[in-house]
Structures are given as structure tokens and as C-alpha cells.
Design a protein around this nucleic acid. Structure first.
Lengths: 250, 250
DNA sequence: TTAATGTTCAATAATTCTATTGAATATTAG
DNA sequence: CTAATATTCAATAGAATTATTGAACATTAA
């Protein structure tokens, strides 16, 4: 094999990974999977894609080793193949962020209020939580909360926020978080709370980054919905063949 | 703006970066640019693309902020916009590597000899170089050598290796390196040297990774070819508009 | 000014990717 | 066994990406 051909083949392999990162829906799937494993239908709902289409995107992700899958009964649960995938997504986001005024513009145009939205750093939150002078608010759905959350965090999904205001002390600052720097749930919660007179800010990034940073994580059953088995991101079971001996139809 | 629309737009922005990483030639360009800046024609030669095509690929890389460009006289010099881009490429390569038996197969099928090709770690090389019991061999072209190399390394391009064997002491092990883990020059040099009876191994990864690791770098004029100005990877000058006031033709 | 050079632009055909549709497959429950 | 469910497969039309071509542009030198 000539050196030129060798190089072409090699970079073609690398590009296969790149191609899979070239679609917004797939990146969204990766972001969502960063929290733990999910079945196809749930992923379809989050992204707004059809189930069939979601399945195809997931298989592309799986083919290049970005996600892994595990079959349990009727469901196939997907998860990130490696925490490094989360970092890869972060790198892409940060490059996009740095480059595109547009990313900033989109974020800002969604957030009507501009001031006071500086996020709280993980270190600050950890310290203030230890002193007990802050209310930590997890605005993700109970399923995700159950799979792991910041110790001591209250779980109030955004939809129920207004109904459950009573849970929140008014004297302390509220720090809200959700899935990651671009998960809009926390933005929304902060906006709502501030509109209601609370002092509220976002945590920098979100829960996956908290976990990645090696900070303490609490796991517990959620009150309402047990959700899928709370096996979170264990890269132990490698992608076994999902279809046994199925072949093209003659 | 609804939350769904907001998310779609955001991930579409991220996917713009992903799309640019979806092509083998562009990844190859990034790998080559990891060593320092290069003019378009040189990049076209390395990748085997036409100049026009290379230019278009480079502009795609530039549009999403992966590379930056600087115009000097007739030439436009491209460079990585940020060392983080090098890491991003590395992440993609490592995922591809982990997933594809094929990547391994390609590499191995190019290397006829399998044994003794375990690379030398950077730490080992640094230590042994200090003791002087190893010959460090930089097999990249003189231009690249001049822009920065491992201290004390001899620069003998692969093509001239056989002619310049006299420079190499036979009693010491030779450690060869080039651009990165997938640069084939070092593989070739090692294969040649071993065939000639030398004890030879590769350095793990290559020079860009050496530099990224913060290890000492020596810069010097190359013997033969001064090459382009040896400004290496300074993210200081941001991409100024390259075309001044040029418009579509009526 | 003109000529030469390095780079970029614009249009095009060939290839590749995407979402949709409806059918096929595996698993569980009855 | 049959029915119901979750997922995957396969075919297809519409959209996007790629390499090629030749021309246009910007810079330097004469």
C-alpha cells in the first residue's frame, strides 16, 4: 500500500466520526445522553423526531462508537460510550460559541433579561451549599433527577415551578441547574423566579459537567416516576449485537 | 421564540462545526496545520488536492473558527485558530481508533514488521535525551523542523535517510518522530532503520503533541530551505478580513 | 502600465445525506 | 398460538456536499 493511499484511508476513517457529528439532531441526542441512558422513544420525544428517524441517528452514533446500547425487554437503552464523548461535544460547542456571534445572539434573544444572569461556579456552589446559605434547584424531570443530582438539591421541574413556590425559601438565593450550558430549562427557571421576586442564578454548565468534575453526586428514587432503570453511564457492558442472526430478506 | 425553536437553532450552530469535521481532507489539513502555519499551495501539495479545492476547504475551516489566516504579500498563511483544535482532532482520532478495528488494520497492514514498534513515551525520551544515550531523529521536512523541534534532534527527512546514515551512531537506539500519531513518516523511518540493522523506535504521537505537553522546544533555521516565516501558531492576530471590499461581479 | 503569481470565486455534475413511509423483526403478555 | 409494543429495516424523493473547471481578483516586479 502506498503512503498516499494509506493516509487517505486513515483520514477517511476519522472523517466517519466527524460526519456523525455533523448533524444538529445527533448532537442534541448526545447532549441528552450525557445524563444517562434512555430508550429510543424518550429520545424521539425530546428531539421531536420520528421514532424511526431517531433510531437511525442513534445507530449512526453507535456505529462510530460515540454511544452504546443495551437491550432490556422491549426497550433498547442508549448511553454515551465514554465520558470523553461528553467532552468532545463540549469542545465543539465551545468552538461554535467562540466563533459565532450568532450563538450568543440566539441565546440572548431567548433571554429577555440580561443582567444578573452570570452563572455561579461549581466551586462557589459547593462551598455555599456546605454553609447552607443557598437553595439548589434541579429543574430537570424527576427521571433524570433520580439518576443522580447535586447533593441536597430540590427537584422541581420547570412546569411545576409556579405551583411549588412554597418549597423555596425567599431569603436565600436560588441556584438552578439542568443538563448543560445549553439546556434551556435552567434559563427558564431563573427567568421565572426573578420575575417573581426571587434572587436566582444558574449554575455554570449543568449536571453532566458537575459529575465530570468529580464533585459529589447523590442518587435517589424520584418521588413520582421510577423511570428507566437508573443505570447511569456505566461503560461496562459493551455494545453486544442487538439483532441476533437477522438477515436481509430474500 | 419558543424553546423548541431555540434549541434547534442552537444545535444547528454546533452542527456547523461538526460538518466541517466531516471530511477526511479537512481533517488532514488540520493535522498538518497543527505544526504551524502554511500557505495554500503547500497544503494543496500535502493533501494532493487542487489549489482551488484546498482553498475552499480552508475557508470552510476558517468560517467555523477552526483555523485562522494571515495574508502576507502574495501568500495567505493558514494556522490553527487555537491549540484546542489540535485536541479536538485528537479526540476524534482516538474515538475512531477505539471503535474501528479497521484503523488498526490499516496501520498494521502498512507496517510489515509488528514487533519492536512500541513507541517511546515522551517522558522516557526526555530523560534518556538528558543522559545522552539516545539519538533523536526528526524525519519531517526541514521547513517544519525549523519551525520547532525536540531539543537536540537531528533533522533527516525520510527521503535522505539512506544517504545520511553516516550521521547516526549505530550503538544508540534511534527514536524517530514526525507530525503526530498518524503521520507515516516516522513509521517509515523506523521500518527502514530496522531493516538496516539499527535499533529504532517511534516517539509516541509526534511533535505537535510534544509541544502541547509543554515540553522544551528548540527553534532554529533549517539548513537547506528557510521556508515560510517561522511564526508558529500564534493566536494573536485574529482573522482580519482577507478580501477588502470585493463584491460579486455585476 | 503589463505580466506573473497565489489565491479565491462561481457554476456544474456526481455523489452523499436526510426525513418519511410502511413493512419487518424481536419481545412480552394473554 | 395471537395481539400489542418497541425498535429496526428498506426504499425513495428532496436537499446538501464534493471535486472540477475556468475565470476573476489582489499583489508584486519590471
Amino acid at each position: 500500500m502506498s503512503r498516499e493511499r494509506f493516509k487517505k484511508q486513515l483520514f477517511e476513517q476519522f472523517a466517519r466520526v466527524g460526519r456523525v457529528l455533523a448533524n444538529g439532531h445527533r448532537l442534541e441526542l448526545v447532549e441528552f445522553l450525557a445524563q444517562g441512558e434512555r430508550a429510543v422513544e424518550a429520545l424521539a420525544e425530546v428531539t421531536g423526531l420520528s421514532v424511526a428517524n431517531t433510531s437511525q441517528h442513534l445507530q449512526q452514533l453507535r456505529r462510530v462508537g460515540l454511544v452504546a446500547a443495551r437491550k432490556d425487554g422491549l426497550h433498547v437503552y442508549y448511553r454515551l460510550a465514554d465520558p470523553a464523548v461528553s467532552k468532545l461535544l463540549g469542545a465543539i460547542q465551545s468552538i461554535a460559541e467562540r466563533q459565532f456571534a450568532e450563538v450568543d445572539r440566539i441565546v440572548r434573544s431567548y433571554l429577555t433579561a440580561k443582567d444578573g444572569l452570570e452563572p455561579v461556579s461549581r466551586a462557589d456552589l459547593l462551598e455555599r451549599a456546605a454553609r447552607g446559605d443557598v437553595t439548589v434547584l434541579d429543574v430537570r424531570p424527576p427521571v433524570e433527577y433520580a439518576a443522580g443530582h447535586v447533593p441536597g438539591a430540590l427537584n422541581v421541574p420547570v412546569r411545576e415551578l409556579e405551583a411549588q413556590l412554597g418549597k423555596l425559601p425567599r431569603k436565600q438565593e436560588v441556584v438552578a441547574y439542568c443538563r448543560g450550558p445549553y439546556c434551556v430549562l435552567a434559563f427558564e427557571a431563573v427567568a421565572q423566579l426573578r420575575a417573581l421576586g426571587f434572587s436566582a442564578r444558574r449554575l455554570e454548565d449543568g449536571f453532566p459537567e458537575w459529575r465530570l468534575a468529580g464533585l459529589p453526586v447523590e442518587e435517589s428514587a424520584a418521588g413520582t416516576d421510577p423511570g428507566p432503570p437508573a443505570v447511569v453511564n456505566t461503560p461496562a457492558t459493551r455494545a453486544a449485537p442487538l439483532t441476533q442472526g437477522r438477515r436481509l430478506r430474500g
